[in-house]
Design a protein around this nucleic acid. Structure first.
Lengths: 140, 140
DNA sequence: ATTATGTCATTAATATATTAAGTATCTGGT
DNA sequence: ACCAGATACTTAATATATTAATGACATAAT
């Protein structure tokens, strides 16, 4: 029978953990969790997003995101406003403070990403990227 | 600059989430969390393990594992005993009840695994497996 | 034997994950 | 205008993740 360590979900978990060791120290030094950084990173690219879109992009479920947004808002990193057309929707964007933080951290993290890329080779990483995209599109 | 969605750690997370949709319903029906199943699955293969070994195999940090073990023990799925040589170590093994549960769930989960394998193809999955192994061995 | 140091498991504190339930708002059909 | 159903977000309850600190035991060197 298939062995414990041959499980793809487990290997995806371990691989992710392995890659995060490249970035975790920088985020930790900045006082940010992985999830908080994903949110900041997404908002930096999309300017303003609804909570639901943010959840989808960051792969964070809505209930978790509510807390993350609360804490980031409390730290002055982002601001909420209600959509004028649809009062149910919450629109979220970065403060200037968070944009500045992003500019500071981003190059250092990109440096680590380059290190990661070089250690496994650009070709293999692109191949991995392609395979992961296919996995992501699967449905039972 | 590299886009948000091109992040390998994020794609590994999304890919794992995608694969878990194949198995989650079965585990949920059985009243087990993903982590609890990882622990049961590892113990089924290795008979008896120290807490530390279990943590390493299942990719679960010790403090989390303590709680998981407590709950599984409370449900009668596993038993603890202290090592006689080294009183610090805790040895953990499955109860007969858990072994039975494993026998019931295992074939159904393997069926889902086959479905997953066929959807992406055996070749691609093996290639992915190889790439993930390389990632797992990386260190900054 | 004693001390210093290290290791293993657990506890503590906070953040996030997960499922279910709740609230407010919107939308379509009547 | 009204109402049933859908949607967006939040709250609640429990489980797990993460880092730091603790307590019990082990080991090596003095």
């Amino acid at each position: 029978m298939r062995k414990f360590n041959d499980s793809i979900p487990l290997k995806l978990l371990k691989a992710r953990e392995s890659t995060m060791t490249f970035f975790r120290p920088i985020l930790q030094e900045a006082g940010l969790t992985e999830q908080q950084w994903r949110v900041i990173r997404a908002l930096n690219e999309y300017e303003e997003l609804e909570s639901k879109q943010l959840a989808e992009l960051c792969c964070i479920l809505s209930p978790s995101l509510t807390g993350i947004i609360n804490r980031l808002e409390g730290q002055g990193h982002l601001k909420r406003r209600k959509s004028t057309e649809d009062q149910r929707r919450v629109l979220i964007s970065l403060t200037d403070q968070a944009k500045l933080l992003f500019k500071e951290l981003s190059p250092r993290l990109e440096g680590r990403y380059d290190l990661l890329t070089n250690q496994i080779s650009k070709e293999k990483l692109e191949l991995l990227n392609t395979l992961l995209s296919e996995i992501i599109n699967l449905e039972p």
